[in-house]
Design a binder for these strands. Structure first.
Lengths: 196, 196
DNA sequence: GAATGAAACGGAACATCGCTCCGCTAACGA
DNA sequence: TCGTTAGCGGAGCGATGTTCCGTTTCATTC
């Protein structure tokens, strides 16, 4: 089930050479523009950077969210796969959870505007939210369950709420030196130990 | 310094009767539209609801943020003033902090999109962010200092980071039944007790 | 190596925003 | 009453996401 759930944009590889090349060019251009201007950069900028027309973008990625997903798919997958690994190699489930959360936060904080887009306020990024959830919710659930079972954590918080809380805490972290999302998240995770 | 820092939009009351009436009408229309469609509702909708032209809105409130501030000024002020009161009447500073945070969260969660707008991602709501900070940062600092002095809290988190974290956690809370911002914030505040 | 059908492209065009500008209206003081 | 001018209204501008369709280019067939 590793590659079957691919969303639109990267699922069926196009037949024609130019189409495949354009898709690759677009992914690279988008990644570059995202780094420079954030995830909410104008679509025109990405098209210009890639040297293609608007229509080409929307042909390959019907939605901006699809493009964002395609760009970050590998990293999200890596984060998802790190969960079980950490659980197996860490000293305790709680330590594994902490390290995994750090991984996730590092990912979000270094992607300009990604956290904000992910929580989508009707800006057309709902698909992005759904994708993150689909990939990371099972992993987070597994880690949380393990930590709960080991008695290290006593909390009525489920994985969805934790994930969402972490995502929220990361919003705007990349553009505000006074704000340290990592520390806030650490405090939140620390709070899991106390019941209510 | 309580009323001197009033922002644009409500400071100098206009001379002409129609202008004053329009300002009042606009505030009511805006409040109504904010409830129905959220804080990010199109300016045109508010103008239509108030039965005035676009120019009239921007004459009274140079920026969308100014309008939002004007609409919620009273409630923000009430929240700010509740801080010292709670500190005086509560059993412990930590209890006061908890109650005050609950107040703040309740306010944010019941205002559609306000939390998201407040953290402003360059959508022109920076003034809103600044206003909240100006009003609430001193109060939060006072509460946090008191709780720290009483030894109930040991944390290197400053008031800005706490406020911002709370604001972030409230984003999207009003439109997602699976997400309970109050509980997340409670966990965060609980985490303040643990150093690092 | 043409011819041809379809896939893919490009960018003009449309809808929707926030916000500005300026000709016109009507409130107010003399 | 009447002139001044604060205030009004909404067309218009620039930016943005998205769609649409005529044109180009590839892959296949003869």
């Amino acid at each position: 089930m590793n590659d079957s759930g691919q969303g639109p944009g990267t699922s069926a590889r196009p037949k024609r050479k130019d189409a495949r090349r354009n898709q690759q060019t677009l992914l690279e251009a988008a990644a570059s523009v995202f780094v420079a201007s954030g995830v909410e950069a104008p679509v025109r900028d990405i098209a210009a950077k890639a040297g293609v027309g608007m229509g080409t973008i929307y042909r390959h990625f019907p939605t901006r969210a699809d493009l964002v997903i395609a760009v970050y798919r590998h990293q999200v997958d890596a984060c998802a796969e790190a969960g079980p690994t950490l659980l197996a190699t860490s000293t305790t489930p709680h330590a594994a959870l902490g390290q995994w959360v750090d991984l996730f936060v590092d990912f979000l904080v270094t992607k300009h505007g990604l956290a904000a887009a992910m929580q989508g306020d009707g800006t057309g990024f709902e698909a992005l939210h759904a994708y993150f959830l689909e990939r990371l919710l099972p992993v987070c659930t597994q880690l949380l369950d393990a930590a709960t079972a080991s008695g290290e954590i006593r909390s009525d918080l489920n994985a969805y709420q934790l994930l969402r809380g972490i995502g929220n805490l990361c919003i705007g972290a990349e553009s505000d030196p006074r704000y340290d999302a990592r520390r806030l998240v650490a405090h939140l995770v620390e709070g899991l130990r106390q019941p209510h």
